[in-house]
């Protein structure tokens, strides 16, 4: 990166580190941090949407739909954590390939499962074997996002379902007394008021989501955990101009600090949002704000 980096072996400690920390692989390491943030920024709204749909389904008056919503919430919540991540990635991948196989290669007469193999025709592979490397990486990342969204969507659905029930019923009845339709009550009264009840649960979920991001590593993404293991391992002078001992401990210390800062900042921001949402609500918090003269 810097001009003095040509021969690292001759450098002092400080410039050596300046050079070491700006090598190409370290840049990939820093990009991996961005990947984590991107994953969070995409997953959070998508999971919220999943949660919203799930909660609406669970509240539906039509029994099969309501059962579907409730099953989605219970199954994902009842079964242990990373098993879901490991399961969904393979299951989704195979599901998509199987569907494409059925559509694209309808003349294929062999079974898809042959003993220990999962065989689909070449055109049904996703991404195609001929595709570029970045397509494969993007596909893997997209699968990870969908998996995260499905799992966290169920949790969000549970929170939103509870929040919708926490909105005082009299509020909804007042809406009905004004002659609003069910749809209008839902949109104008229920939705605006439920957020304050949902926020504590959702902020807890956001914290859990942040802490779930290292599991990207298990889904085969080159994320910060992957790079910390790669870069920290002992490097001998034969393969790199920056030989060093086993520094994995320090790399993981950096990750630990990164996550601690991330959760702390989130805590502070969520606290602010809660203050804003509580304003004017008929809850203990809202009452306290009113008495303090904040309104």
């Amino acid at each position: 990166m810097f001009s003095f980096c040509a021969d690292p072996a001759t450098l002092d400690r400080l410039p050596w580190f300046a050079c070491y920390l700006t090598t190409g692989v370290h840049m990939s390491f820093y990009v991996a941090f961005a990947k984590v943030v991107v994953l969070l920024l995409i997953t959070a709204p998508v999971a919220l949407a999943f949660g919203f749909l799930g909660a609406m389904a669970a509240r539906a008056h039509f029994l099969p739909v309501s059962l579907l919503g409730k099953t989605y919430i219970t199954i994902v919540r009842g079964v242990p954590d990373i098993a879901f991540f490991l399961f969904f990635v393979i299951a989704l991948d195979q599901g998509v390939e199987w569907l494409r196989h059925k559509v694209l290669c309808s003349d294929w007469d062999q079974p898809v499962r042959q003993g220990s193999d999962f065989v689909v025709c070449a055109q049904a592979k996703l991404p195609l074997n001929s595709a570029a490397q970045w397509v494969h990486e993007t596909y893997g990342f997209a699968l990870a996002i969908i998996t995260f969204s499905i799992v966290f969507g169920a949790f969000a659905a549970n929170v939103i379902f509870g929040a919708m029930r926490a909105v005082p019923h009299t509020q909804l009845e007042t809406g009905a007394a004004y002659g609003m339709s069910r749809h209008q009550i839902f949109r104008r009264i229920l939705i605006p008021q439920m957020w304050v009840y949902a926020l504590p649960g959702l902020s807890n979920l956001w914290m859990v989501l942040i802490k779930a991001t290292p599991l990207l590593f298990l889904l085969g993404i080159e994320d910060i955990v992957y790079w910390a293991r790669e870069l920290g391992g002992t490097k001998s002078g034969r393969f790199t101009s920056y030989p060093h001992g086993d520094w994995r401990m320090w790399y993981f210390l950096v990750l630990l600090v990164f996550y601690l800062c991330f959760t702390r900042v989130s805590e502070i921001l969520l606290e602010r949002i809660m203050q804003r949402l509580t304003r004017g609500q008929a809850t203990a918090g809202g009452e306290a704000q009113r008495k303090a003269g904040l309104l």
Partner: peptide, 20 residues
């Protein structure tokens, strides 16, 4: 704060390499 604010997964990794 230290143990609740960071992922258990990273704690495991860090502890393993620390013990090494």
């Amino acid at each position: 704060f230290l143990f609740r604010g960071s992922p258990l997964f990273i704690q495991f990794f860090f502890a393993y390499f620390l013990f090494l």
